[in-house]
């Protein structure tokens, strides 16, 4: 809730992932309840028949088939030409979306740092398992040298990282993000939906406190074959505000103010509103086959990845 006084920005991968965590992440792989078609050959069994070492089926030859896949043994025995079909192994597209608006840079511990760590951990899991990993930052400030200027709905994107060697590239990108400014979630979702290719997993990290509402944006993200996970990150201060007295609350994003005199009924009302908001987000996601979870920013990353996300079938 409260703006982090002196935000700590990660300098490199060692700030995002500890070696201990890496050791625990290594055996994991991404998964999805839906099986998607991959784009590149990967380590994931695809519905497609293709080139791999694992036999799948036979089918009769038809004109134009690649003669390399004729099963000559069958032909010798039956004098009919059958084609050998193999299981295709494909990669999985992992799309990580994180909210870089000013409101993310709040809370103790910072929600943004939490989201950075989560993105890095999941990206690591994706990269080491030869999946295509892409990441999008919504909002935020444009890169170095122009820090003060908001960059619009989507500030920075990395696409199609693959393989363990790209881990550092992803870490560099994550560290380069600078939260700030405001953005339109609807616009950002539109752009993400338009630019992505293929199908796969999409994890959206945000607090989902959007003045215009999260419904439009989420509606645009769903429905393109992506398995969308909506991870709402809330700081402890947002859940239990440590406020007293006569205050003028200033919105970090749009400089909107609200004059409040903190009282027990007001706090009670705020908490009820927060619960209702989260429930509304959850039910909205459930109706659209999105998976919703609310995470406190003081949750350890290994608990998030190894416990919460494993239970919900993101990793295994």
């Amino acid at each position: 809730m409260l703006k982090t006084a002196t935000p700590t920005r990660p300098k490199g991968i060692e700030d995002l992932l500890t070696s201990d965590l890496i050791a625990r992440l290594d055996p994991l792989d991404l998964t999805s309840k839906k099986v998607f078609f991959g784009k590149l050959k990967g380590e994931r069994r695809s519905k497609k028949r293709g080139q791999s070492v694992e036999f799948a089926d036979h089918r009769p030859y038809s004109v134009g088939d690649d003669t390399r896949h004729i099963d000559w043994n069958i032909y010798a025995r039956l004098d009919q030409i059958f084609m050998k079909l193999f299981l295709e192994e494909e990669d999985l597209s992992l799309q990580l979306v994180l909210d870089c608006s000013a409101s993310s840079d709040c809370g103790e511990p910072s929600k943004f740092l939490f989201m950075q760590k989560a993105v890095m951990a999941l990206g690591y899991v994706g990269l080491v398992n030869l999946n295509r990993v892409g990441a999008t930052a919504m909002g935020g400030l444009a890169g170095e040298g122009d820090a003060a200027a908001p960059a619009g709905a989507v500030s920075s994107v990395v696409r199609d990282l693959r393989g363990r060697r790209r881990v550092h590239e992803l870490a560099q990108w994550v560290c380069s993000l600078e939260p700030g400014g405001d953005f339109s979630f609807k616009e950002a979702a539109e752009r993400i939906a338009l630019t992505r290719r293929g199908k796969g997993l999409m994890l959206v990290f945000s607090d989902f406190f959007f003045k215009e509402g999260f419904e439009e944006g989420l509606r645009r993200l769903v429905g393109h074959g992506y398995d969308v996970f909506v991870i709402q990150v809330l700081s402890p201060q947002e859940i239990d505000p440590p406020l007293t007295g006569d205050l003028r609350l200033k919105d970090l994003e749009d400089a909107d103010t609200a004059e409040v005199t903190i009282s027990a009924p007001l706090l009670k009302k705020y908490k009820a509103n927060l619960a209702a908001y989260c429930q509304h987000l959850g039910s909205f996601c459930a109706r659209r086959e999105m998976t919703h979870m609310t995470v406190r920013s003081d949750t350890p990353i290994d608990v998030l990845v190894l416990d919460y996300l494993r239970k919900r079938g993101v990793v295994r």
């Binding site: 409260l2 709040c106 406190f209 205050l247 609200a258 409040v260 009302k269 509103n273």
Partner: peptide, 22 residues
């Protein structure tokens, strides 16, 4: 008027709603 302490919050969305309710 009352001098109110300025506090920056992530969003005033829920607060405004709470105030309106009250």
């Amino acid at each position: 008027k009352l001098r109110r302490r300025d506090v920056e919050v992530s969003t005033t969305l829920l607060w405004k709603k709470a105030i309106q309710d009250l």
